[in-house]
């Protein structure tokens, strides 16, 4: 891969992420690609803690911690201020969790991208409110246990398709990425950095603590999510041109679910219906990619 800064680190050791934290890896990869001419806005999320308490910061770039639902708006302000000061070079990035993106921050995000604010919004998705102790979010997948979808009341609703919601805003760039595919992730970050307008990157970031799995499985499980098409890797330009970046070899969802405590209650029938949903979503994506090919 042609990335000059691949060897540079813009993050320090000694952060307080859980062992095997996918979000820590996601940040590390992203910053390698973006470099240090980056200002980062971090609304409330695991990273509010991971970054370290006063007077520490684990990131070697300017960081603005902000209120939970303000990722899109604070970045708009930072961008506007830099523009008016004549600095149009600095990359402004919002780094939010799934709660801050799919749920409480969705309005500000939608507003910012509708205005096509010139910034990158990165959602690192660990599929629940992990920082507060694993409560369900609209990113929590069908079938998952959380502390607010306990026992037999596991979540029986689908995960919100956030990328498609962003694509509907017809923003210049929306992409998914995974900690298990660092080269793809860094390529997308670099690509986003070199574009203008609102750019959205959705990073699948496994959470050993919240998902009930051993820390060493963090990357493996993220890879399986891609391999099973539960979390396909793709990018969409201008809300129209779909590119699927990884064509899976047809792994079944079964093993992915079996490796995680949050799904251990699921029966064979449940898994079959989940497989159907996953296949349906994947076929839908394929159709979109196909349609885009025909019209382009």
């Amino acid at each position: 891969m042609q990335l000059d800064n691949l060897n540079r680190e813009h993050m320090c050791s000694g952060h307080v992420g859980c062992p095997g934290c996918g979000a820590a890896l996601a940040m590390r990869f992203l910053l390698k690609a973006l470099g240090n001419k980056t200002i980062m806005i971090i609304p409330a999320c695991c990273w509010s803690i991971i970054a370290g308490p006063y007077p520490q910061s684990t990131l070697k770039i300017p960081v603005l911690h902000s209120a939970f639902e303000t990722g899109g708006a604070v970045a708009s302000g930072v961008r506007a201020a830099h523009d008016i000061k004549g600095d149009t070079e600095t990359t402004v990035v919002t780094w939010a969790g799934d709660g801050g993106t799919f749920d409480i921050g969705f309005q500000a995000l939608s507003g910012a991208v509708e205005r096509n604010e010139n910034f990158i919004y990165v959602c690192y998705d660990n599929e629940a409110y992990m920082n507060t102790g694993v409560q369900r979010s609209s990113s929590t997948p069908y079938g998952a246990w959380t502390t607010t979808t306990p026992g037999q009341h596991w979540k029986r609703l689908r995960k919100k398709n956030i990328v498609e919601a962003l694509v509907a805003h017809r923003i210049p760039y929306a992409a998914t990425a995974s900690i298990a595919f660092p080269e793809d992730l860094m390529r997308k970050a670099k690509k986003a950095k070199d574009m203008a307008g609102s750019r959205f990157i959705h990073i699948f970031s496994s959470c050993p603590t919240g998902w009930g799995m051993p820390s060493e499985m963090s990357v493996k499980i993220a890879r399986m999510a891609v391999q099973t098409t539960i979390f396909p890797l793709y990018e969409v330009e201008d809300g129209l041109r779909y590119t699927i970046n990884y064509t899976p070899k047809g792994y079944l969802v079964n093993e992915y679910f079996r490796l995680q405590g949050r799904f251990k209650h699921l029966t064979e029938e449940d898994l079959e219906s989940i497989q159907e949903m996953v296949d349906e979503d994947w076929n839908l994506l394929l159709r979109k990619a196909g349609v885009a090919l025909e019209t382009s």
């Binding site: 062992p19 095997g20 499985m217």
Partner: peptide, 29 residues
């Protein structure tokens, strides 16, 4: 995730900084 694996000149080419390694095991897997 801890940036605790550092490249160096030893024959293996790298070492683990146990000051920061939390033992997550990702490197092993």
């Amino acid at each position: 995730p801890e940036i605790a694996v550092t490249r160096d000149n030893n024959p293996r080419g790298r070492h683990i900084n146990y000051d920061y390694c939390k033992g997550c095991g990702l490197c092993v897997v």
